[in-house]
Amino acid sequence: MAFDSLSAFIAMEGHGPYVWTCYAVFVIFLAGLMIGSARRNRAVLEACKRGIEQQGSTTGTRPKAAATFTRVDVSQH
C-alpha cells in the first residue's frame, strides 16, 4: 500500500475529492454503457421473438380468414 491508513487513502493528501470523483464518474459511465448495451440487445432479441411468434400465429398454424367485402366510399374526383 502507498498509504498508511484507510483515512489517508480516502483523503489522498487533499486530492481525494478530485481522484474519487474521476473514478466514480468513470465507473458509472462505463458500467452504464455496458449494462445499457446488454439490455438493449436483450430487448431487441425479445422483440424479434415476439414478431416471429405473431407471424407464425397469423400465417402458419391458423388458416387465413376468408376475405370479406365491405362497401367503401371512395371519392372519384
Binding site: 500500500m1 489522498m12 493528501e13 478530485y18 481522484v19 473514478y23
Partner: peptide, 18 residues
Amino acid sequence: AFAPKDYLQGNSYRIIFI
C-alpha cells in the same frame, strides 16, 4: 492504492490510470 505517489503532482496523478 499501490502505485507510488508522484513526487511532483502528488496523489492527483492517480487520475491518469483512467
